[in-house]
């Protein structure tokens, strides 16, 4: 007989389930549009479900913050929660204001569903905020990180559908390619600021601006690969498919860096807190 594992209850998990349901509804609607089962007019339903999910996740983030007394950026549960909220918010705004990104929803929204499903399976036990986290640079670091991941995911969504030979929408393939790279450029700018702000925080917190810890190292590797990909796109006749693959590689590295590397241990920048 298998042992029964009881997960400690956290009230914000209920809101996360609601947000996850919103993402699932949004993803299903986008796939129906993509497969021709629904017309483009159903894009309103995609956006509506997306906003619904983001609103519920905003409640979850707020409740968590008030309950544990610090921002949601310490444990894997909190990092996942803040990311499914910020990624959803970023993508909702992009979907609303930039119709060219909409074909990518068939990739972006399932990714959000997977992250949300992961979130509800992770222990919600709160951690203790290290004293070194009480620093204004941390907010810049986290904020730019969210913008980086949001722009990167949006770019990767378009790159993915371009690779599947299916970037329809206004302007066609050429426009989708340019929009994907514009979001990649935006991601690179925020990633640069993320590293600069992280270095400034590290200097105040630990007396060094760079320490080659796993998170810093993988973050730099991701930045170098993103920079190389952008450089190649802007200066060479890079085969488009190679460029789209490179965008996907950057996203995978970024997700591993943000959600993998720090949680092979228990907290971001483990070992130097």
């Amino acid at each position: 007989m298998l042992p029964t594992v009881t997960q400690p209850f956290a009230p914000e998990v209920l809101w996360i389930w609601g947000g996850l349901a919103g993402y699932i509804a949004s993803a299903v609607a986008s796939i129906r549009i993509r497969t021709g089962a629904a017309s483009r007019r159903a894009e309103g339903r995609v956006l509506g479900a997306l906003w619904f999910a983001v609103a519920l996740l905003a409640v979850a983030v707020t409740q968590r913050w008030l309950r544990v007394g610090h921002g949601p950026f310490l444990t894997l549960f909190e990092v996942l929660l803040s990311n499914i909220f910020s990624l959803g918010l970023f993508y909702a705004v992009a979907y609303w204001r930039a119709p060219a990104v909409r074909p990518g929803a068939v990739i972006v929204l399932p990714v959000l569903v997977v992250l949300g499903a992961w979130n509800v399976t992770v222990s919600p036990v709160p951690g203790s905020l290290p004293a070194t986290y009480d620093n204004p640079w941390l907010w810049v670091h986290v904020g730019t990180g969210k913008m980086f991941l949001g722009a990167c995911l949006t770019a990767a969504g378009l790159a993915g559908v371009l690779l599947m030979r299916g970037a329809g929408g206004p302007g066609g393939k050429r426009h989708a390619d340019v929009v994907a790279w514009r979001f990649m450029a935006l991601a690179f700018v925020f990633q640069t600021l993320l590293i600069v702000a992280g270095a400034a925080w590290a200097r105040d917190a630990w007396g060094r601006f760079w320490g080659w810890d796993p998170l810093e190292t993988w973050s730099l590797i991701t930045w170098l690969i993103a920079g190389t990909a952008l450089h190649a796109r802007l200066t060479w006749k890079l085969p488009p498919a190679v460029g789209w693959w490179s965008i996907l590689v950057v996203l995978v590295l970024a997700v591993l860096t943000f959600l993998g590397v720090p949680f092979l241990s228990h907290a971001p920048h483990r070992g130097i807190i």
Binding site: R182, V189, P240
Partner: peptide
């Protein structure tokens, strides 16, 4: 970082010269 942002701001239009390198490619 701000200079880079400024540089890409100048290329926000999809028709901006910055992104034209791949346009010659038939796949795009």
């Amino acid at each position: 970082a701000l200079a880079l942002g400024w540089h890409f701001m100048g290329s926000l239009s999809p028709d901006a010269r910055l992104w034209r390198a791949a346009d010659r490619d038939p796949a795009v």
